[in-house]
């Protein structure tokens, strides 16, 4: 079984701060990491490979430093890595990203599953996975907690708020995984050494055979108009007297009085 895992390199948000004057992210000196949720996608793929055999290919679009993320994925044990790097891809929104990834997947051709993280910690749109499935016209199974493959079909347990749903689809299919789906493995020391002996395949816009106007900023319908930190509204603290039930009742009354519920 051949699996493609799409990953994104993101700034380590634990280290990120905002410039209050410009409202923009201060990225200088911030280390980049594999989007944590994408590590769950890699782990899910590696576990499926251990059960069913085959190959895991990791795919990422971004500037040259994306190589670090791909090497880390190779260190975790994936078999191959493909990097989409081209100035034409700069400024891509989720749609343009899905378009380029879709072309790359078509070029890879031989695959049974695509696995993505549910969402990236920088954008938090959760759009790329589903859009990629639409782009390729394959079934999408989102928010997976568990994945099982039997007889050319894939089944997942989907997390849907407080509910779980069991979904099934023929392969090839695309799955997005939740953070709780697994605990990503620590890269073994020998695999790390091997990771640096492997070649990373580089594809640019010309290699993907797509329409120029669909790449990057030109192909992105989303236009970012402003980034800002919402102003905090300072209120008065009021302590409610009484036992837990009585205090809760008073609290609900006050919220109702303000038409919040």
């Amino acid at each position: 079984m051949n699996i493609i895992v799409c990953i994104k390199q993101v700034p380590d948000v634990k280290e990120v701060s905002w410039d209050p004057k410009t409202g923009s992210l201060i990225r200088k000196g911030i280390p980049s990491i594999i989007n944590p949720n994408d590590k769950n996608a890699i782990e899910a793929a590696l576990q499926l490979r251990e059960r069913h055999g085959g190959e895991v290919t990791v795919l990422s679009m971004g500037p040259s430093q994306v190589e670090d993320a791909l090497r880390e994925a190779l260190g975790m044990g994936v078999d191959k890595a493909i990097q989409l790097t081209s100035k034409e891809f700069a400024g891509s929104d989720t749609w343009a990203t899905s378009y380029a990834l879709g072309l790359a997947v078509r070029k890879i051709a031989q695959y049974d599953l695509i696995i993505c993280g549910k969402e990236a910690i920088d954008g938090m749109t959760a759009q790329v996975g589903p859009q990629l499935a639409e782009c390729l016209n394959i079934p999408q199974l989102t928010y997976a907690l568990e994945i099982e493959v039997t007889n050319s079909k894939v089944k997942i347990k989907q997390k849907l708020g407080d509910f779980h749903r069991l979904l099934e689809a023929p392969m090839p299919a695309l799955i997005t995984v939740e953070r709780e789906a697994n605990k990503p493995r620590v890269a073994p020391m020998d695999t790390i050494l091997e990771a640096y002996g492997k070649e990373i395949t580089l594809w640019d816009a010309d290699d993907l055979d797509g329409e120029d106007e669909n790449f990057g900023l030109k192909g992105s319908p989303t236009k970012l108009t402003r980034v800002y930190t919402p102003k905090l509204i300072k209120g008065k603290v009021e302590m409610l007297e009484g036992g837990p039930e009585e205090a809760a009742r008073k609290c609900v009354e006050k919220i109702r009085a303000r038409y919040i519920i």
């Binding site: 620590v186 890269a187 790390i192 990771a195």
Partner: peptide, 18 residues
């Protein structure tokens, strides 16, 4: 080397996890 840096990160992850 990049390999050494990744080993350090892996060892750090291992310590945090295990």
């Amino acid at each position: 080397s990049p390999e050494s840096k990744m080993m350090v990160k892996a060892a750090s992850d291992f310590c945090e996890k295990e």
